[in-house]
Simulated scan of single mutants.
Amino acid sequence: MDQAAPHTAASLAADLRDLGVSAGDVLLVHSSMRSLGFVAGGPRAVVEALLAAVGPDGTLVVPTHTPENSDPAGWRSPPVPESWWPVIRAHTPCFDPARTPSRWVGVLAEVVRVWPGARRSDHPQVSFAALGAHAAEIVARHRLDEALGERSPLGAAYRLNGKVLLLGCGHDSNTSLHLAEWRQTSPPRTEEGASVRQPDGSSRWLTWTDVRTDEGDFGRLGAEFEKTGAAAVGRVGESAARLMSQRALVDFATAWMAAHRVRSAGA
């Protein structure tokens, strides 16, 4: 069936308010632009709708991840020859919040990243960008070894009682669930590597140890969370949308993982 009329920034903002987005919200958004249907003005209009919904006292937050800035020894899709690894480590340009584009997190995130006034955290692999009243607070002090933990924008959003909005995507894209992984007792850890900017602007390959992420059960976890009735489900444009308290989500996920994830021997 043809949709009656194009969606607009105003109509999408109304849909967001009907879903439960309120003025002053800290709103962490994961999105698929295609899922929204035709929008007059495209991605820019969608960002304007999100900003209108949270208002001048609210804050819009998006992931601006750069997973290609990682150790090539772990690449699988596709792998690269081992002989290339030293070259990649030595010559990958350092992550620069102002210059490095996001990858695989959707066009809306990239539009927010370059929006006037946007602030971006300084993690070389899992940065976030924010616009609005709490932007600076959310992106500050993103530690290298706290990629998605307490001292990351996810932890900041939790402390600010933020909300998570999934637009046309599932819980497998819900990065807030990773915060629950950091909150487990002795979570599995792994070595990471990336090209990191030095104080003089030069690049240096660094390695560090952080919590190992695992999205394999996020779909099941998210479905169990939604059964509690704590997520509002509706339509924004043509998109199936889910809105939830990030704090309620993370608290539920922390307990769920402790009960359902099987620990490896010696973990």
Rank of each mutant, 00 (worst) to 15 (best):
A10K: 11
S11Y: 06
L12F: 06
A13S: 13
A13H: 10
A13N: 01
D15W: 07
L16W: 04
V21L: 02
V21M: 04
S22C: 11
G24E: 01
L28N: 15
H30G: 03
M33C: 07
M33R: 12
S35A: 15
A40V: 15
A40K: 13
A40S: 09
P43K: 04
R44H: 15
V47W: 05
V47M: 05
E48A: 10
E48I: 06
L50F: 14
L51N: 08
V54D: 00
G55K: 06
G55E: 03
D57A: 15
T59A: 07
V62W: 02
H65A: 11
T66S: 09
P67V: 08
S70P: 03
S70M: 01
A73M: 07
W75H: 05
R76N: 15
S77A: 15
S77P: 10
P79H: 05
V80N: 00
V80W: 02
V87M: 10
V87S: 13
I88P: 01
A90C: 08
C94V: 11
C94H: 14
A98R: 14
A98W: 08
S102L: 15
S102H: 06
R103N: 11
V107T: 12
R113Q: 04
V114S: 14
G117W: 05
D122L: 14
H123D: 03
Q125R: 12
Q125G: 04
L131T: 03
A133M: 07
A135R: 02
E137T: 09
V139Y: 00
V139K: 02
R143D: 14
L144P: 00
D145Y: 05
A147C: 07
G149W: 06
R151G: 12
P153H: 00
G155D: 08
Y158H: 13
N161F: 08
G162S: 05
L167Y: 02
L167M: 01
G170E: 08
D172L: 12
T175H: 01
L177F: 00
L177N: 00
H178Q: 01
W182G: 02
S186E: 12
P187F: 02
P188I: 01
R189C: 12
E191Y: 10
G193K: 07
G193Y: 04
S195K: 00
R197L: 11
P199R: 14
P199M: 09
S202W: 04
S203R: 10
W205C: 11
W205E: 00
T207D: 15
T207R: 12
T207I: 09
T207N: 08
T209R: 11
T209H: 11
F218E: 00
G219I: 07
R220G: 10
F225L: 04
V233A: 14
V236N: 02
A241G: 00
L243R: 10
S245D: 08
Q246S: 15
A248S: 14
D251Q: 08
A253C: 01
A253N: 01
W256C: 01
M257H: 09
M257Y: 14
H260L: 02
R261L: 13
R261S: 05
V262M: 14
V262H: 13
S264E: 11
A265S: 10
G266H: 00
A267G: 13
